[in-house]
Design a protein around this nucleic acid. Sequence first.
DNA 1: CCAACCGGGGTCTGCCATAGTA
DNA 2: TACTATGGCAGACCCCGGTTGG
Length: 377
Amino acid sequence: MAPRNLLYMRSNFLLGSRCWMIRFSTEILFKSVSFRLFGVKRNNADGESLEKDELLNNLLTMGVDIDMAKKRQPGVFNRMVTNEQDLKMFLLSKGASKQVIASIISRYPRAITRTSESLSKRWDLWRKIMASDLEIVNILERSPESFFRSNNNLNLENNIKFFYSVGLTRKCLCRLLTNAPRTFSNSLDLNKQMVEFLQSVCLSLGHKDPADFVRKIIFKNPFILIRSTKRVKTNIEFLQSAFSLNSEELLALICGPGAEILDLSNDYAKRNYTNIKEKLFSLGCTEEEVQKFVFSYPDMIYLAEKKFNDKIDCLIQEKINISQIMESPRVLDSSLSTLKSRIKELVNAGYNLSTSNITPLSWSLKRYKAKLKKLNG
DNA sequence: CCAACCGGGGTCTGCCATAGTA
DNA sequence: TACTATGGCAGACCCCGGTTGG
């Protein structure tokens, strides 16, 4: 308890003395430039160095990777007030291990600038969505930034209200928070922009229930709210032009099997699709066939160029005809290593891939094993 | 019994740029 | 002017099994 009291005293005493900060920062700058050459020197000649030593000692004791933390957010180390002990106590009380706490601070040092009250409030808001502290700890361990990047709890509260007002269920919010926790640190305005954008897409495509459409698309793709509208717009336009779809088909695609495509970064979808076309043209497919093929399983646009080509090559090498692949696009779902090992096993079992069905290549392991056993038995 | 069909589940951060702020 | 809050970017699948229809 003693260190905590000390910390509060320090806070009160130093609050507002800005001139210290400037001296602090020049010193830090000097150190960060020089420490690689000369090693870190501890200077305790005056007060601010003591403060700094205290911070560094605290972090060191906690097992924080100070070099990493300084590199990520040097500004935090120039502050006169930090709450690392409070943060530690807080997270411990929520069930986080010391290692997790150290890792969180190493990766997002600004976490130590938050007050207990603010943390507590924010945590409670997250708990309105998540069923247990442990789940939240797991998210923080994965992505400390999404929890700590904003200190604006009112905004968080408004986001939650907004999502409910859009008609998302608690289950859906839970999914959002688990998969894309950053969503909740977005400004309310940013989230609104995306929702309104999606509604406008829906309306312009002649759908009569934009609210339902938005719910569907967000549930299907929980990452969408951390994408820029520019990105999503580009990808929607790509899908429409690539498959020359009518409104209804496009809508069904983007809130169904193509929902994930909307996440793809700049021109990635276009690049991959171009690659798919080239590869399949080289194997004698027509434009129409390719379009139909990709549309039947749009997820393949996710595949990097090399990965797609490698998979196709691997299948072709085994005398599997391109038309067989076109009929069973899901075989591209399997990893290259799964394809390779299964091909080998099936061939060993006397299965003729060029004349038989190739779908076992993409079955679940359980079903595949059963099949193999039968072939061998 | 067998396989096609098809939807679901996990997972997705860590960095940089910059306007705003004290 | 340093620091904070926030927006945005690149990155780039694989697997499972319930239901259905033959």
